[in-house]
Simulated assay, not measured.
Amino acid sequence: MRQGILLYGPPAAGKDTITAALNELDGRYVPFARLKIGTGKTQGYRMGTPEQLAALEARGDVIYRNDRYGNIYVVDRPGLYQAMEGGRIPVVHLGQMVGMEQVTTLFPAHWVRVLLWCPKETTAQRSPQRGDTDTAARLAAWDATEADLAAHPRAQWELRVDTDTTAPREAAERIDKIVRTTSPRS
């Protein structure tokens, strides 16, 4: 059975950092590169065109689409299949509960859901440190993520990690333990 990890949290909560720590722990953990249609940062994305997006939508291969920061970000079926080849375990970053719901519903796999959290002040500090030029938009997204989480009080998580008090390696080890103990192959 295919496996994946969903990391949910506000901007600068540590999704990239914990994904890197997971990859260092076990090379099967790979970052899922969402399809991005737009401008700005390209690292960590598969850059696409509006025509590619239209073709994916026409085939029903868009699992989740998010429009933010003037760009379109897509979790797509072909991308997930490719990311899971050879027993790899993709780590998908999301900041919206609807995305979590759509991925777990529309793409059958054993998903481990992890809530990464940090205070708004931490996002305000980390955002410019990582080179963001739109920290105000990141803080607005933090507010939206907090409201989104509050609107889904029954959301189920295998783990919550407060990233301002938990080292990335420790978080990765805790996530890895959950993946290994809940794996359908274990």
Rank of each mutant, 00 (worst) to 15 (best):
F32S: 07
A54S: 07
F32I: 10
R46L: 15
Q43A: 15
A54D: 04
I63M: 06
G40M: 12
A33W: 04
I37Y: 00
N66G: 01
V30C: 15
R68L: 11
L53A: 09
D67I: 00
E51T: 01
R46V: 15
P50N: 02
N66C: 03
Q52E: 13
G38Q: 10
A33N: 08
T42G: 12
E51Q: 09
A58M: 02
D67K: 05
R68D: 06
D61V: 04
G40E: 13
R46P: 05
I72A: 09
R59N: 09
A55S: 07
F32N: 07
T42M: 15
N71E: 08
M47Y: 01
E51F: 00
V30G: 13
F32L: 15
Q52H: 13
D61C: 02
K41G: 11
M47S: 05
A54Y: 02
G60V: 04
G48M: 03
M47R: 04
L35K: 11
I37P: 03
P31D: 09
R34L: 14
Q43C: 03
L56R: 12
Y69R: 11
G40Y: 13
N71W: 05
V62D: 00
Q43D: 10
T49D: 07
G70S: 10
Y64T: 00
P31W: 04
R34F: 05
G48V: 04
L35P: 14
A33P: 03
T49A: 09
G60A: 13
E57Y: 02
G48D: 05
I72R: 01
T42E: 15
T49F: 07
V62S: 02
G48F: 02
